[in-house]
């Protein structure tokens, strides 16, 4: 019984405490760099699209709101021919970012995406792709992958030895 009265008293005292509310549009809250907000597609340090259309983000997405289709340029570099995120479905869980093997898809600290028309929440690749590396700097998937692309032949990736001559029997 006493504890109830104490509770009442303590709650009453809270009337006079400093308020936690941030008056949002005038003042903005601090959002950590790893805040999970709007999704972007980034580029690698050379300016190429990081996304290789591996479909892992799409399959990781618990609400299936990512759809893409892959294609490749004449040198074998892969990129998405379209990349669509339906933000009216997105739950900002960040699984796509975790699944992404190339740091291409990233969630950034921006949540201000309200729209009067739901259709405007469907973002295509041109809406998602930024001209930068986003949160993760310096990573270039094709520098570590074995696939040959333009300006990177076989054996030129990091930690690769030059191509062997299969017709040689030398040790």
């Amino acid at each position: 019984m006493l504890s109830h009265i104490r509770t009442l008293w303590l709650v009453f005292l809270h009337l006079f405490r400093k308020k936690e509310t941030i008056q949002y549009p005038e003042k903005k809250a601090y959002l950590a760099p790893r805040y999970r907000g709007r999704i972007i597609l980034s580029r690698d340090p050379d300016g190429g699209e990081r996304c290789v259309a591996c479909q892992l983000c799409a399959v990781a997405c618990p609400v299936d709101c990512i759809a893409l289709d892959g294609t490749e340029d004449e040198h074998g570099r892969r990129f998405p021919s379209f990349f669509r995120i339906n933000f009216s479905r997105c739950i900002y869980c960040g699984f796509c970012e975790e699944a992404c093997p190339t740091y291409a898809i990233q969630l950034i600290p921006d949540f201000e995406m309200a729209e009067y028309n739901r259709k405007n929440l469907v973002y295509e690749k041109e809406d998602l792709l930024i001209n930068g590396e986003g949160k993760y700097h310096g990573y270039n998937f094709y520098r570590v992958a074995g696939l040959a692309i333009k300006d990177k032949d076989k054996g030129e990736a990091e930690n690769e030895s030059p191509p062997v001559d299969p017709k040689s029997l030398l040790p």
Partner: peptide, 10 residues
């Protein structure tokens, strides 16, 4: 308003 104030809100 009162509930908010008691909960440290506005």
């Amino acid at each position: 308003r009162l509930l908010a104030l008691m909960q440290d809100r506005l």
